[in-house]
Design a protein around this nucleic acid. Structure first.
Lengths: 189, 189
DNA sequence: CTCCGAGTTCACCGATCTGTGAAGTAAACT
DNA sequence: AGTTTACTTCACAGATCGGTGAACTCGGAG
């Protein structure tokens, strides 16, 4: 999938991922990214072309890492009912390690232009999760997979927002508990 | 509380509110705000002191407007059960008019410095809503007002995030329906 | 030996950023 | 008449922004 980054490009992307998430996209300049990567700005532009493209790559890689975590959790779960909660299982440790909320929501806040290459990545990420929740609910035999998936999505996104801007570290656990209750109601009825 | 803004300052704040929300805080410069307000940059600094202070004022005023809307809704509701849903009643038209998500979550994404004057406003806003939900649940006789308030908060914030970055305009209605179900369970048990 | 990819150094571009200093104007208030 | 309030004009500062051009080094592969 990704055409094997050069060592320098790898470092740039790792540094950019941390800085963009921790400090925001607009607040972090290419000069800082280059300096922190032990690389010149010239190399950054030779590898990525533009800051916008680098931002898109950052979001893309973060999306991949998160999907891999969800897929890994799914692979460890057998019963359809358990599988519905897989994203919430991942969410608990994820929010503990990422206290600045959802990187995609944050990026959305900073990228008002719908034509920005990063916007497509954001849209993909949200759609992927919603589709996954819907499919798992359907596989578990829920009466209204679409409606249920939307409610679970609300809880998921709410937990991310609430751990970030809300400053409530326990939000993910609460979201997981409530998600289980929503699932049970969707299955028994 | 607010010491009656001068006409110029009023225009500056109105323009800044739109631009900050639509395009982001870092992306909007003071030159643009001044120009769009029909005011010179000098006036902007004479009235507000700094961009950071202007940002804080923008958040503060938005917070006040939103609280007023919730309080107005509360004033029109009688039964304790209805009152619990007041923030969700406000949320439906609010999200329809503000398609770029929660201004406070967005601002949080752009203001990583905990010392920024805007951060206190963000924290206040979230706490106010959580306390209100808790108090209304308690007044309605809920068994666990704290736990219930957190779940309702998750749905509320989830709806805002999902209408914004998620691009799902119907999220607020779904959140309101689910909030009603959560409330009913909290009251009957 | 030669070529190429990866990365370096360094100077530079034009634009934009927040913020300030000094002086002047017009109207309203006392 | 005098003072205050609100705002203007204009020039300027210092930094930082994203992005580029040209030439150079170095190691590995053919």
């Amino acid at each position: 999938m990704s055409p094997t980054l050069t060592p320098g490009a790898r470092r740039i992307l790792d540094v950019a991922a941390v800085l963009f998430y921790e400090r925001g996209i607009h607040a972090v300049g290419v000069d800082l990214i280059a300096a922190e990567s032990g690389v010149t700005k010239r190399t950054l532009y030779d590898r990525f072309g533009s800051k916008d493209a680098l931002v898109a790559r950052y979001l893309q890689e973060r999306d991949e890492r998160w999907r891999d975590a969800v897929r890994a959790r799914l692979a460890a779960l057998d019963t359809p009912a358990e599988r519905v909660l897989a994203p919430f299982d991942v969410l608990v440790p994820w929010t503990a390690a990422n206290e600045r909320g959802c990187a995609f929501v944050n990026a959305f806040a900073e990228l008002p232009d719908p034509g920005h290459p990063g916007r497509a990545v954001i849209a993909d990420e949200k759609r992927w999760l919603r589709d996954l929740l819907r499919d798992e609910l359907a596989a578990a035999g829920a009466a209204d997979p679409d409606g249920g998936a939307l409610v679970l999505l609300l809880l998921h996104e709410g937990a991310l927002a609430t751990t970030g801007a809300g400053g409530l570290p326990g939000a993910a656990e609460a979201a997981r508990r409530e998600a289980a209750a929503v699932r049970d109601r969707a299955l028994t009825r």
